[in-house]
Design a protein around this nucleic acid. Sequence first.
DNA 1: AATGAATGAGAGTTCATTCAT
DNA 2: AATGAATGAACTCTCATTCAT
Lengths: 200, 200, 200, 200
Amino acid sequence: MKDQSQKPKYKQIIDAAVITIAENGYHQSQVSKIAKQAGVADGTIYLYFKNKEDLLISLFQEKMGQFVEKLREVIDGKASATEKLYLLIENHFRILSRDPKLAVVTQLELRQTNRELRAKINGILKNYLRLMDQILQEGIEKGEFSQGLDIRLARQMIFGTIDETVTTWVMNDHKYDLVGLAPKVHHMLIHGLGGGDETV
Amino acid sequence: MKDQSQKPKYKQIIDAAVITIAENGYHQSQVSKIAKQAGVADGTIYLYFKNKEDLLISLFQEKMGQFVEKLREVIDGKASATEKLYLLIENHFRILSRDPKLAVVTQLELRQTNRELRAKINGILKNYLRLMDQILQEGIEKGEFSQGLDIRLARQMIFGTIDETVTTWVMNDHKYDLVGLAPKVHHMLIHGLGGGDETV
Amino acid sequence: MKDQSQKPKYKQIIDAAVITIAENGYHQSQVSKIAKQAGVADGTIYLYFKNKEDLLISLFQEKMGQFVEKLREVIDGKASATEKLYLLIENHFRILSRDPKLAVVTQLELRQTNRELRAKINGILKNYLRLMDQILQEGIEKGEFSQGLDIRLARQMIFGTIDETVTTWVMNDHKYDLVGLAPKVHHMLIHGLGGGDETV
Amino acid sequence: MKDQSQKPKYKQIIDAAVITIAENGYHQSQVSKIAKQAGVADGTIYLYFKNKEDLLISLFQEKMGQFVEKLREVIDGKASATEKLYLLIENHFRILSRDPKLAVVTQLELRQTNRELRAKINGILKNYLRLMDQILQEGIEKGEFSQGLDIRLARQMIFGTIDETVTTWVMNDHKYDLVGLAPKVHHMLIHGLGGGDETV
DNA sequence: AATGAATGAGAGTTCATTCAT
DNA sequence: AATGAATGAACTCTCATTCAT
């Protein structure tokens, strides 16, 4: 792991954790294995993280932080909520497409943790969900989205759909183009199964 | 656990597993704890299940089997795909509302298992997903749903939305009425965020 | 096991134990497996034997009893100790050659038992060792064997040699003729490595 | 176990295993008991041995290795095969006499292991048996031993006799002098029961 | 005499974490 | 800051034996 020696140890260890977990699965990613992948001693990990759980939370925080940050950049300044939603979906897909190992870790492996850890992970996710809520709020105000929309439910539909789509893609070994699905997914979320042309 | 003594041991143990896992979490549900809850000796569990994994898979199979069966009964003979979708959502919500412990187990705890076990669980889920595909196919043929619908993606939207809605409800300690959300969720899935009245 | 139904249950179970142990090894011969082989219920074994250890001791007693009895018949009335020794070796080899499963059990499997059980087995062996002592005593008195012979050591040489020869044969999957080795083994025991023609 | 703290852990654990097995018997020598005897934590054993079986094989290898090595040293450079055989017997007896616990372990306890482990132990014994074969070959060539000798059978006589003698000594709680038996055993092996003076 | 479902004690092994160097 | 040897608690599964029928 010579090329990692430039990075600060903190990030070096987190990246090693992503690789180790993606390659071996959560339950087969012992601290000693992560340490070896990072090129440090077992004990060194405890100089940077309080314990294993803290490492995993930090991993999620670090990666999710970048994630939301990147999305905000892309979305900011766009005219419509509809467009913002599209960019959110596409970039969500794009970021995970570019880092399939991270995708494996977030979609499959990190969900194998216990309730307590998952609660903390959900806390971190809050930022992302809030971003969705903002888009939804804006869409409703601008008249793009239905006035009667229940924002919390709508956000659950958006997040649930995106999440399920990515998970299915990961479980199918990334064998098809995820980013290419963005337009269809976006269209479905906006117009529903009915396609927006139904005469109700 | 005197009132369980009527049931066959097999079901008795599965029900004990649901209760134990819901109350203690997956990783704190040792075989001995499940046995005690079931009112049998540890070894007895191994007369009915090959090992702990087999017990968990059987649990999922047993409960999911009832689930899909019940849904089929409710849905069969209904006129429209739209109506069938509504019934699927409402009953999905209803069944888990009536058995909050089962909801905890399926939404949170059983996802903490390793990749291999989850693959087996997904195999069992297939039946349910196929039911959704049938409804979608029918809806497209009858002109209720958009002709251009990608069935696989649409199913991921439906399942992802339902799943996320239930999980959020479970994570909020079942503190609101889940079944009551069915109409709104159904409407969103059919009409999308745009509400079906947008002029695009 | 229909053809066993004539035999008394006691022998039926012992024979089943021999077969089961020979085929599966001592540690893989659970009571339930022996019961199945014998065509009886697990519990039935406890009507005929106090416990598993008792069954094994009885097995050894039964088979070893026949063994010594047969040898006595063959040997009785023979003229010389040398001849008796030969017959003992040859018949020891012959009996185990004819029942290779019994050979596996006595040479390999029954030695895997704990110290206590082996002490009891040795008690049963005593009869056989006493027979050897008698032959040795007779041989010394008749002048066939050396006057200075230490009977106990001599018996250990005879038994050790026979036992090692049979064990090696069993470990080599009975792939050569054991009985045919009797003359050579006998000659070696009588004349030693020197062959009796050395000029000392 | 303070006085063991100088030794490398590897040997420290092996010696603890010998003592524990000799004192408690094979089946009552749990890993935790061996660890306690060695003055280390249970887990430490697994830093030096793959598993319990590996510890036992290593024990035998280590002790048997020293054994054969010591015998080679003693025997090398001796003039006759007869003398070499004597030294082999005497030293075999001497080494086990000096370490009665090791004798208990090799003669009684280690034979209680399953077929697989015993096969591995036999593999290690091969070196010792080969040493015997060499002595026999040399003796035949030098005219000390009978020309017609079957080396394999002769080795089985030697090993069987020595082994049985030691085992009997161990089963009698080492209550007599084993080394003192060497001359008689040697004489018997060379001249046989007949004593070498029989006129055949 | 016979059954066989139920019992429950018992042990090898893993791995997150520590701490002397 | 970094190391890595040592720790020791914790859990699944087997199987001889029992006893109600």
